[in-house]
Nucleic acid binder design. Structure first.
Lengths: 133, 133, 133, 133
DNA sequence: GTGGTCTAGACCACG
DNA sequence: GTGGTCTAGACCACA
């Protein structure tokens, strides 16, 4: 199974699909050029309406993660080797990171534990080892 | 101004209020015991309905960040010095961190940049430096 | 009718709804997985605003009794077979019990009557008979 | 100190005062005829407004626990030896008991634990040992 | 069709 | 003056 969903989560299903696929790309399970299942197929697999899958794929396309083509279906467009981020993206992303880290330190996680967990997560990804040319 | 909102964001207003307050606690602008503005007052300041502020405060209370008292209003209950996190919290939190970091590395941020930004953010917080006694 | 309310009571309506639903779960009328009426529907049935029902459901969710799902609405999450209580819950609960029992014995109920009524109430619930495996 | 309050509780202060005094009567710390502190005195002791104490005493009088006299102040009117309850009281009380017990069994307390805790609490009260004539 | 968000205004409880 | 409750209605997100 490509994905596992929590239908009772307050996170919308389409968002969960998006999140799991982004994570699958990050950890190397889906490399650039990989084909994603068809929306109808994945919807059937997950027991949800294919329109919901459609919305997730739309979101992934708008965010630059995949390419959608009527003939070939959805294909991974970026992975961790695909080149640098767009201008301004990192700063916008850091704002969200700031919110997430703030919650953790206020609720009692030590800074060293926070950085440790960041490194653990990064280590689980299939990231390139050196700098890009 | 305590808070700045983006009324056009798809993030709900009450969630933005919650996020900004958590960040303010993390960076030391709001220490344990600090009083928050009254819901009606803050609502007026921000140009929004006080019920929306109420919902944000309710959320903060349910998540353990503040306590609410009829006489004194809302008061910060936790800050970065308030003690360790609840069991299981860190693991649940790491799942959300994983999603956020995955997005960054796929969209082209180098791992070293990711960890650098984590440390930058943590450094901006008023975190305790050593282990707690 | 699922619920009967006393609109003249000083107990808030949303609290009454919460109490009646918890009781319905306890006595087996609502088993784990049962669907609750939609907020708008129940509000119409009871002649109250759906926001009030919403607040009751929110409370039930925060206390772990139900889960709420956009598609399926509110569903019972715990019943008497769902497993042991959280650490510390029983002691906090006993404080409330103490207050209630104190009132009864001072106002003239015999201890044997108090225990008898406790057992009567427990007997009316659909409680598991032995220890859990 | 006669009472300990939790100023951050969502239970109103006047209600907490009422509850603690009822418990003190139940466990024998306050026997019938005992004088309660003056409202101003108790308010000063607790660091709260004496009007709040006044409201608690009013409630206790309306519920039959104390007698208030301009000259002698507030005096305990009932204790566990004062005779049987009013007609209908026990049934109304049982409704509240039912709500409280329902919560416990749904949240995972075993029936035997519930009855055990009831008996523990009753055992802590200074209750008469036999039947009344 | 479901719940979620936001606005708005009234009245009450608390201290 | 503070938060809490309840009502009311509009619009949106989700599935």
């Amino acid at each position: 199974m490509l994905l596992t969903l929590d239908l009772d989560s307050e996170v919308p299903i389409y968002q969960q699909i998006r999140d799991r696929i982004v994570e699958a790309i990050a950890d190397g399970a889906l490399a650039e050029g990989s084909a994603l299942p068809s929306t109808r197929h994945l919807g059937a697999d997950l027991g949800i309406n294919f329109h919901t899958v459609n919305k997730a794929y739309d979101l992934l396309r708008n965010q630059g993660f995949i390419r959608i083509n009527r003939k070939t279906g959805a294909v991974v467009r970026r992975d961790t080797t695909s080149g640098p981020a767009e201008d301004g993206y990192a700063d916008e992303w850091q704002e969200r990171l700031r919110t997430l880290l703030a919650e953790a330190v206020v609720l009692g996680l030590e800074p060293r534990e926070v950085t440790g967990r960041c490194e653990t997560v990064l280590g689980s990804f299939a990231v390139k080892s050196g700098t890009r040319p």
